[in-house]
Write a protein that binds this DNA or RNA. Structure first.
Length: 198
DNA sequence: ATTTTCAAT
């Protein structure tokens, strides 16, 4: 009776992958980025489930070309060809905040795509490279709402991007001091974003 | 103990 192929299930992230990558207690040399898109309609944001998913950076293994998660995401976004007559809000939940180079690329994309608004929730601040702070400020100046993930966002991602269908208890299992660490990082970020030079 | 960072600043 069932006609046609079953709808393709959206891929979900492995539980441990999420906990390993987004935790404040565990710093991996890789980055995961979860994303979703809303379209403005009658002053409301309507979720577009077809543009919901996650990805990870490429290249550390197998000798592939290295590529930060944001660059992969930018390519994916470009491939959607979002209608320039409409307004979109793109939300990213990313395990590391963007490096300065990725921040530049994001700013460039947003300049060329005025119909797209971007929000970035980062689990941790990536301060490996000098200029990480000016990169974050450039994002803010370009209209990106950059904030740290709080319990609410971790839980949201757990519910929306992580595969825990088999579990009896599907609630998000927070790690020790999640709320405190998130609050500390939020204050650090606030200081970075306030601190305009010149 | 809150050393860790999309590895190789």
């Amino acid at each position: 009776m069932a006609a046609g192929p079953a709808p393709e299930a959206r891929p979900l992230m492995n539980k441990q992958t999420f906990l390993d990558n987004f935790s404040h207690l565990n710093y991996l040399n890789e980055t995961y980025l979860c994303y979703e898109v809303d379209r403005m309609q009658d002053d409301l944001w309507i979720p577009l489930d077809e543009y919901k998913g996650f990805l990870r950076n490429k290249g550390a293994d197998m000798g592939l070309e290295r590529r930060h998660a944001e660059l992969i995401f930018l390519e994916r976004m470009a491939s959607w060809n979002l209608d320039t007559e409409l307004r979109y809000r793109v939300t990213c939940f990313i395990s590391w905040s963007p490096c300065p180079d990725c921040a530049d690329e994001l700013v460039k994309f947003l300049r060329e795509n005025r119909h797209v608004n971007l929000r970035i929730f980062a689990a941790r601040i990536y301060e490996r490279f000098p200029g990480y702070d000016t990169g974050l400020r450039a994002l803010k100046a370009a209209g990106v709402k950059v904030t740290m993930m709080t319990f609410q966002e971790f839980e949201y991602c757990w519910k929306n991007f992580v595969d825990h269908q088999q579990d009896e208890d599907e609630s998000f299992p927070p790690w020790d001091n999640l709320v405190v660490r998130s609050e500390e990082l939020s204050q650090r970020l606030a200081g970075i974003l306030q601190n305009q030079e010149d």
